[in-house]
């Protein structure tokens, strides 16, 4: 059970600083979650910390590949802006 970081990631370091398990590492071309260490924050916090601070929609996904922050959910920018 682990979250994953996608190529939408902009390498801003925010998630790495808040992960309670030190599960996020800087890699090229983008940050990655160590699926051996990630607990999805269960037992530590109500929200997955990386997904709660990540500013980029669709950068963090669950095992099914669904984004924790879907398009529009962080910026309020609609899919096709006016």
């Amino acid at each position: 059970m682990a979250l994953q970081i996608t190529q939408a990631c902009v390498n801003c370091w925010a998630c790495a600083g808040v992960c309670p398990n030190g599960a996020i590492a800087r890699e090229i071309p983008h940050f990655l979650v160590d699926d051996q260490k990630c607990t999805e924050c269960l037992g530590d916090y109500a929200e997955a910390q990386c997904a709660a601070i990540c500013p980029i929609e669709c950068a963090i996904v669950d095992e099914a590949g669904d984004p924790l922050n879907p398009p529009g959910s962080l910026t309020g920018i609609p899919a096709s802006p006016v």
Binding site: V10, C12, W13, A14, I53, P55, I56, L74, T75, G76
Partner: peptide, 14 residues
């Protein structure tokens, strides 16, 4: 200091 803890509507973190 790369990380930020808020979002401003005039900023694109990219």
């Amino acid at each position: 200091a790369p990380a930020c803890n808020i979002q401003c509507n005039y900023c694109n973190r990219k």
